[in-house]
Nucleic acid binder design. Structure first.
Length: 221
DNA sequence: CACCAGGAATGTA
DNA sequence: TACATTCATGGT
């Protein structure tokens, strides 16, 4: 579908390359993927800074650190009790797998289901890890992707894998394209595609106005 | 004050 | 299958 590339080109021209994912190492990216669940990235940075300050930003450290202490360190990221448990579960799993280097050797067909079995890791978190930390070609879908796609009229469904398949089947299988496209959709969403839209200067305004959602006819997007 | 943020697990019908 | 609820801090 040419429309997908057209949107991508507009976003890239408007926002420029996003060079995602922010993070120094693949492990840090994977931890960030858990911490950023339904949370502002700025808050995640504070949590990661705390982990660095406490010198526990490693699978071994996080695997054995006191659960309550870990919760205090990541408190700024929100849901800190749940996320502390998620981090420990993931790190124990990672150690058992032999670390990030071993993960990268696996193919996505076997690795993705394994990630999804881990308590606390859903489809978006798994795909974020696969795409941005492990360099596997999988398209990441998030709340913005769903919202933008439906408002623009690209598709009419909400299911994660349906949307993921839509992008992957209508784009060339290109890791860098996947990485950049998702990052650009997030940037668009943060600025112009909130639940209560502010689309007056939306860079893909013309597309948005084609098919507004029912009940949103009076909205700009 | 209300609203939102780069979700996922759990429970209900 | 499709929703509703819970988890929680911090910025605007």
């Amino acid at each position: 579908m040419q429309k997908l590339k057209s949107i991508y080109n507009k976003l890239l021209k408007h926002f420029g390359p996003q060079h995602w994912w922010p993070g120094d190492t693949p492990f840090e990216i994977m931890i960030g993927a858990i911490l950023t669940q339904n949370t502002n990235w700025g808050n995640v940075e504070k949590a990661i800074d705390n982990l660095k300050g406490a010198r526990v930003l490693g699978a071994r450290d996080l695997g054995k650190i006191n659960l309550k202490k870990l919760g205090e360190l990541i408190r700024p990221s929100g849901y800190f009790r749940v996320k502390a448990r998620k981090l420990k579960v993931f790190c124990r799993w990672l150690i058992k797998q032999g670390g990030v280097r071993q993960l990268k050797k696996q193919n996505i067909q076997s690795l993705r289901p394994q990630l999804l079995e881990i308590w606390g890791i859903g489809p978006e978190t798994a795909d974020s890890m696969l795409c941005y930390a492990l360099d596997k070609s999988t398209f990441v879908v998030d709340a913005y992707t769903k919202r933008i796609g439906n408002r623009v009229g690209l598709f009419k469904f909400q299911d994660y894998h349906q949307i993921k398949d839509f992008f992957e089947q209508n784009l060339p299988k290109d890791l860098d394209l996947y990485k950049e496209y998702h990052a650009l959709l997030v940037e668009l969403g943060k600025n112009y595609c909130k639940p209560k839209p502010v689309c007056d200067s939306c860079p893909i305004n013309r597309l948005c106005k084609k098919k507004p959602l029912r009940g949103e006819e009076q909205r700009a997007c």
